[in-house]
Every structure is written in structure tokens, then in C-alpha cells.
Design a protein around this nucleic acid. Structure first.
Length: 113
DNA sequence: GACTTGACAATCC
DNA sequence: AGGATTGCCAAGT
């Protein structure tokens, strides 16, 4: 607790995203018990890049399966390229079969109850 | 220290 | 069905 543990939870969830799968900001937010804080999740991702984290931020997209944050990566096509390397199919910044490769993050077990 | 912005999402007209 | 509004949290100005 204390100290933006919100970010901490976000990072923890994102870190657990399996390779070849993707999730949405809202799903992560919900997993950490802040379903309405999806914006902050995205913000945490932006910060994670600056922090040089190993977080697979490219596996995190909005609920439409669109690479909304691709513009924040080093190079505008970095995000799509990384996803394609994992076997995903992306068309026009839109993940194909998004629903199929969607990965729902497990609810953290220590934040509340 | 108040106001604005931001890689979203759900709700209301 | 689609545009507009609100919620939420953190960081920047």
C-alpha cells in the first residue's frame, strides 16, 4: 500500500500476460479492482516505457483490440511488429481474432477483501 | 496548490 | 445507433 501501488498492480498484471495473447486496459483495471480506472492503466503503461520496464506493453490494447498506444512506442510500427512476431495478426492497427487471443488477467489476490 | 491532459470505458441522451 | 458526458487516478504545467 501507499506509494502508487496502483501502478504496481498494473505492472504485475501486465507482466503476467502470456506470449501470443493480449488484453485490454479495462480488463487489467478490473483485475486490480479498479474497473473504472482503465485510463490510469494506460497512463501506467506510458510510464513503464519511460522506466525501461520489461512489460509487454505491446500486448495491451484497448477494448476494441486496436493498437491505440502504438504511437507511444519507439517507432510507430514497433508495437504491431512485436505482436506479429508473437503470431498475432494485425490489420490496420486492429488485432484480428482479438476475442480469440484475448487473455483475461486473473484477479489479484491481495489488494482487497 | 488548482487546472488540464491522458495508451480507456461505461452510461446517458 | 452514435455523439456527448462522466468516472477514475496519476503526472505535468
Amino acid at each position: 500500500m501507499s506509494n502508487s501501488d496502483f501502478f504496481d498492480r498494473v505492472y504485475k498484471v501486465v507482466e503476467q500476460i502470456p506470449e501470443g495473447r493480449v488484453t485490454s486496459y479495462g480488463a487489467i483495471a478490473k483485475a486490480i479492482g479498479a474497473a473504472k480506472s482503465s485510463r490510469t492503466v494506460g497512463y501506467a503503461m506510458n510510464a513503464c516505457v519511460k522506466l525501461d520496464r520489461d512489460l509487454p506493453a505491446h500486448r495491451v490494447v484497448n477494448r476494441n483490440g486496436v493498437l491505440t498506444g502504438k504511437h507511444h512506442f519507439p517507432g510507430q510500427d514497433t508495437m504491431q511488429r512485436l505482436l506479429e512476431e508473437e503470431g498475432l495478426v494485425i490489420k490496420n492497427d486492429q488485432i484480428q481474432n482479438f476475442k480469440t487471443i484475448f487473455w483475461e488477467p486473473p484477479v489479484s489476490q491481495g489488494f482487497k477483501l
